[in-house]
Design a protein around this nucleic acid. Structure first.
Lengths: 112, 112
DNA sequence: CGCGTGAATCGACAGAGGTCAATGTATCTG
DNA sequence: CAGATACATTGACCTCTGTCGATTCACGCG
C-alpha cells in the first residue's frame, strides 16, 4: 500500500535551465514537478493552503467546488510532488506547503 | 468562507500565490503557462534555446530526437504561452526565449 | 517558371489525466 | 458494539495531449 504523505520529491534541484541544456533525466523530473502545478484546481488549492497556513481537506471542497474524491486526488498529486505535506490529526487531514519546493522551482527558472 | 478576491489584472502577472488565494481566472491563466513548461521535450527545448541564445527549428530535431512536426508543435505551444518568440529569416525560423515570462513565473511562485 | 528545402498543418492513434459515484478504510462518539 | 464522520481507493467516462506520417504552404534559387 502506498504511503499517503511520502515526502519524496520529484527532483531536488538542478542548474537553472537558462544556463545549460537540461539532461533528459533532469527534464523529466522537472516536468513532473511543473505538471503537478499546471492545473487550475491545484494552483488554487496551493494558494489557499499557503495563505491559510494550514488547511483541512474538508475545508477545501467548498471553496474549490470539487467533490471529495477529486480533492483527495489533487492533494495526493501535490504531496507526491513534494509541494505539500499532510498530517493526520484524528479524523482530519491537515495540509501545509513545503516552501523549499517552490524555492527550487524558482531557482530552476533562473532565480538567484 | 473566504470570499473570492477580485481578479485584478495588474499587468501581465498576478500576485504571488503564497500571499492570497488565486482567483479562478488567474489560476487558469497560470495553469496554461505552467502546462507549457510541464513537458520534458519543451523544457529541453527551452534550455537549448536559452543557452544558445538563438536556435533554428531545423537545429532542434536532432538534439531533441523528435520529428519535424513534433518540434513544430512544441515551438507553437511555447510561443503561444509567450515563453519564446520566433523570427522568420528566409526559409528558416529562429527562436529565442522571452526572459520576462520566466521572471513572471518566478514572481508568481513567491519570488520578489 | 519549376525545383528543392524548411516549416506549418492535418489526421489518426495511443496514452495520460481530471472528474465523480460507489465503495472501502480509519477514527471518534454514544 | 453501532453509528457517524473524514478521507482514501476503485472503476468508469471523457477530454486533452504528445507523437508521427502525409500533405500543404512559404521561401530561395536556377
Amino acid at each position: 500500500m502506498p504511503a499517503t504523505n511520502t515526502a519524496r520529491r520529484a527532483g531536488v534541484c538542478c542548474t537553472a535551465l537558462t544556463k545549460t541544456p537540461l539532461s533528459q533525466k533532469d527534464a523529466e523530473r522537472t516536468a513532473v514537478l511543473l505538471a503537478a502545478m499546471a492545473d487550475p484546481v491545484r494552483l488554487r488549492l496551493l494558494s489557499i493552503v499557503a495563505s491559510e497556513g494550514e488547511v483541512c481537506s474538508c475545508n477545501l471542497e467548498r471553496p474549490l467546488g470539487k467533490s471529495q474524491p477529486t480533492i483527495s486526488h489533487h492533494t495526493r498529486v501535490l504531496a507526491e510532488a513534494g509541494l505539500i505535506v499532510g498530517e493526520r490529526r484524528g479524523k482530519w487531514m491537515w495540509w501545509r506547503i513545503v516552501p523549499e519546493s517552490l524555492e527550487n522551482i524558482r531557482r530552476l527558472l533562473g532565480g538567484r
